[in-house]
């Protein structure tokens, strides 16, 4: 029954996250509230990692697959994207590269300065 109990805990936290998403007027999704609830439960000792571990690791491992259906939806977005296609072809690689470079370099700089 170990896996069932782990799944129950995870789905219950997701459910509480959804309630918060409904009640709090911010565009923060249920999953993020749930992440914070689980983190607080673990660090305060309400939950032990052994109560969720295997099921949690399984869900994290298969997470990339969960984006495939939404991405396949791009096949219907052709018309909407076509008006700004050139801009997007430049913008997505350029701004993402700038962001990754800035976040990575700044984090590394502050870490190494301390050492």
């Amino acid at each position: 029954m170990k896996y069932l109990r782990q799944l129950t805990i995870i789905l219950f936290i997701s459910f509480v996250g959804e309630i918060m998403n409904q009640l709090i007027p911010l565009p923060v999704p249920a999953g993020i509230y749930g992440l914070l609830i689980l983190l607080l439960s673990l660090s305060s000792g309400i939950l032990k990692t052994s109560q969720i571990r295997e099921t949690a690791l399984f869900l994290v491992e298969i997470m990339p697959v969960m984006f495939v259906p939404a991405a396949v939806g791009l096949m219907n977005a052709e018309n909407e994207l076509s008006g700004m296609l050139t801009a997007l072809i430049v913008m997505i690689p350029v701004t993402t590269t700038i962001g990754i470079a800035a976040a990575g370099l700044v984090t590394q700089f502050v870490i190494r300065r301390k050492k």
Binding site: I10, L11, I13, S14, G17, E18, P29, A30, G31, I32, G34, L35, L36, I37, L38, L39, L42, S43, T49, I52, R53, T55, A56, L57, L59, V60, I62, M63, M66, F67, P69, A70
Partner: peptide, 16 residues
């Protein structure tokens, strides 16, 4: 995709 919310919740484990 239905599992995306519980999977996001579970990201708390590696973080913890």
């Amino acid at each position: 995709s239905y599992l995306l919310t519980p999977a996001t919740v579970c990201l708390a484990l590696p973080l913890y």
